[in-house]
Design a protein around this nucleic acid. Sequence first.
DNA 1: AAGGCGTACTGTATCGATACAGAAGCGCTG
DNA 2: CAGCGCTTCTGTATCGATACAGTACGCCTT
Lengths: 354, 354
Amino acid sequence: MKPTLQTVADALGISRSTVSNAYSRPDQLSPQLRERILETARQLGYSGPNPAARSLRSGRAGAIGVVFSDALSYAFTDPYAVQFLRGLAQTAELYDTGLLLIPVSKDGEAAAAVVNNAVVDGFCIYCLTDWHPSLQAIRARGLPIVSAERRDPDNPDARYVGIDEAAATLAAGRHVTGLGHRRIALIADWIIPERETRPVTVADPEKLPYYVTRERLLGYRDALAEVGVGWPQIQTVNAAQNSREAGAEAAGHALDRAPRPTAILAVTDILALGVLDALKARGLRPGKDVSVIGFDDIPEAAASRLTTIAQPALEKGRLTGTLLLDPPADPAERRILLPTRLRVRASTGPAPDQ
Amino acid sequence: MKPTLQTVADALGISRSTVSNAYSRPDQLSPQLRERILETARQLGYSGPNPAARSLRSGRAGAIGVVFSDALSYAFTDPYAVQFLRGLAQTAELYDTGLLLIPVSKDGEAAAAVVNNAVVDGFCIYCLTDWHPSLQAIRARGLPIVSAERRDPDNPDARYVGIDEAAATLAAGRHVTGLGHRRIALIADWIIPERETRPVTVADPEKLPYYVTRERLLGYRDALAEVGVGWPQIQTVNAAQNSREAGAEAAGHALDRAPRPTAILAVTDILALGVLDALKARGLRPGKDVSVIGFDDIPEAAASRLTTIAQPALEKGRLTGTLLLDPPADPAERRILLPTRLRVRASTGPAPDQ
DNA sequence: AAGGCGTACTGTATCGATACAGAAGCGCTG
DNA sequence: CAGCGCTTCTGTATCGATACAGTACGCCTT
C-alpha cells in the first residue's frame, strides 16, 4: 500500500492538515515540525501529495496544454514550431509549470476526449483550422485560452499573440512586384482541406478556412492587385503538408507549365526550401530564373539564401506563456501583435526578360 | 457554478454512476439513454468528467512525463532530441496519451517538486546525470520508468532503450587509428559538472559521472589503446554545453596548441559541427589537416559531410513510448539495444604527414 | 411456476488531498 | 489575571469523479 498523507500523520500522531501544510504552506507551521514531518515521510517512502488529488482539491494543475491540429509529431518537424515551443517552454519553466503536448489529429470524438482528459490550467492553441472539432471541446473546458496566432473572431477580448500576417506578405509582395514580376505562383498548405498536392482554383481567398494561409495569401493578392495582376491570373498550388518534399512537388506543378512563373511565393520557409529544391532539380537559378519567397526565417533560410519574412517565433512563445500563466491586468495588454520584417536575400531578383 | 456529473444526473433523475458510464463505459447502458445523457450534458454546458477527479479515482492520468536534465527548452534545440521526441510523440498519439515535458533545471528541492506534481502514468528519463536530484524523486513516485539511454545500474530489470555507446565509438576510433591518426583530442560536454569550456585532465574515465559521455569516451580510449596510445596522451576538452558554439570554443583549445591534434573526436554532432566551424575559422581543411567525428547523424551532419555514428533516434523514441504504454509481457523484451552505424564522410581522412 | 441468467441501472464507499473555521497555547499588556 | 492577538495546529467538509456490489426486471428453460 502506498503511503498517503494520513499514513504520515498517523505515524506522527498529528493531523493530516498539518502534514499537508508541511508540503504546501511551509509558513503555516514551525520549521522544526516541518522537518520532522518531511523526515518521517522520507522514512515511510511517501513522495509528497498525490498530484491528481491535489489538483482536484486545489483546482490547479501545474501544466498548460499545447494543442496542435496536425499530428503531434509535427510539433517537432518545423523549425518555426520548435522555436515557438522553446519560447513557451522558457516561460513555463519560470513558473514551475509543465507543458502538456496534446495530440488532436484524430476524428472529432477522439480529439475532444483527449482535450477533456488533459489536467491543465489553460490551453495554448496553435495551427488549428477554424473548424477543428477540438476547438469547441477546448472552449467548453472553460479554462483560459491563448491563441498563438490570432484574435478570436468569436470573442475579441480573448488573449492572443500574433503578427499581422497580411501586412507581412503585402510588403513581401510589393518587393516582388517592384522587381518586375507579374507571372506569379502561390504555394500553401491547407488551401483545401484535402491533403493533396495539386493546382487548385480558389474563387474567393477571403473564404479560405485556415487563418494563416488565408491571411498570407490575401496579403499577396493585395500586393499583386496594386500592379494590375488580378487574383484569377495568379496560379495557386496546394501542398499536401508543410514539408520540403510537398513544397518541391507543388513547385513542380507551377514550373512544368508554360509560361513558367517568374516568382513563386510560399507561405512557409519549409515549403520555400522545397521550391528551391525543385528549381535545382530543373537547373533553374533562384533569384535569376525564378524568384522565391518564404515565411518565418528559420535558420535554414539564411543558409539557403532565401528571401523571407522574419517573425519573432521565440518571443511569440514566451509571450504566449506569459499571457497564460501571468496575464497583465490591463485587458488591452493581453492582445499582442508582434512585428515582422522582410529579409531580402539572394532568392529574389529582377524578373527575367522573356 | 460549473456543472458536474451530479448536475447532469439530477437533471435527468438518474444516478451519477449512469452518467459516468455514459462517458467511460458506453457498453454499460443502452444507446438511447446514453444519447439522452450526452444531449442533456451538452445543454447544461457540461464538458465531460473532470480530468483531475477521474485521474484521482481511476489512477490513470493519460499522459507520460518526459524529464530532461537540462533546461526544458534544450529539448527543442538539439535535432537529435527533437527526433527522439518525435518518435515518442508518435507512440503517445497511438494510445491517446499526452506528453508532459517536465523542466528539472532547478535545484534539488524545486526539481523534486515539479516531478511530484506531474499527473502522469509513467516517466521517460533521458539525458539525466546519474546523480541528478530529480531521479530519486522520480523513483519515489513508484510509477513505471523507461530510460531512453541505458540499463539502470541499480535495477537491471528496469526497462530501457539504448545503444551500445562504447561499441559505437570503439568502431569509430578504429576507423581513425586505421587512417594513421595518433595525436587525438576528445571533446565532450559533462566531463566535469561545471559548465566551463576548457581542457581537463581525467584521471580515470571509468569514473565519469554522466553515462553517455563516459561510455563514448571509453570506446575511444579502448580504440586508441589498441594502437598504443594511452589515455594520458589523449587531450580532453570539456564543452560548457552541447552547442555548436561551445564545440567551436573547445576545439580552439585543442587546435591552438602545438603540436596540433590530427583528429578531433566529439561526442555529439552538434559539438562536431562546432569543431568544423573552428577549423574553418583557422583555414584548416576537415578530413585533410584535421579529421573530425561526431555522433548521432543529425541531418546537418550529412550536409556538412561530417563522419559520424548514426543511431536510430526516431525508433528509439517510438520504442520508448511502447515500453511505457504497452510493455511486452516478456521482461527480456523490455530491454532493447538498438544498432548504430559508422557513417564515413569527408571529415575524416588519412593523417597528414608532419 | 420456479429457477436461472443476462442486461440495465442504482447506491455507497472511496480515491488523496486542500480549504477553512476554529481551538489551544503562549506571551504581553494594563 | 482577564483580555487580546499571534502563531501553530486540528477537524470536518468537500473537490468530482469511478469501483464495485447490489437490485430490478425481462426472458428463456424445464
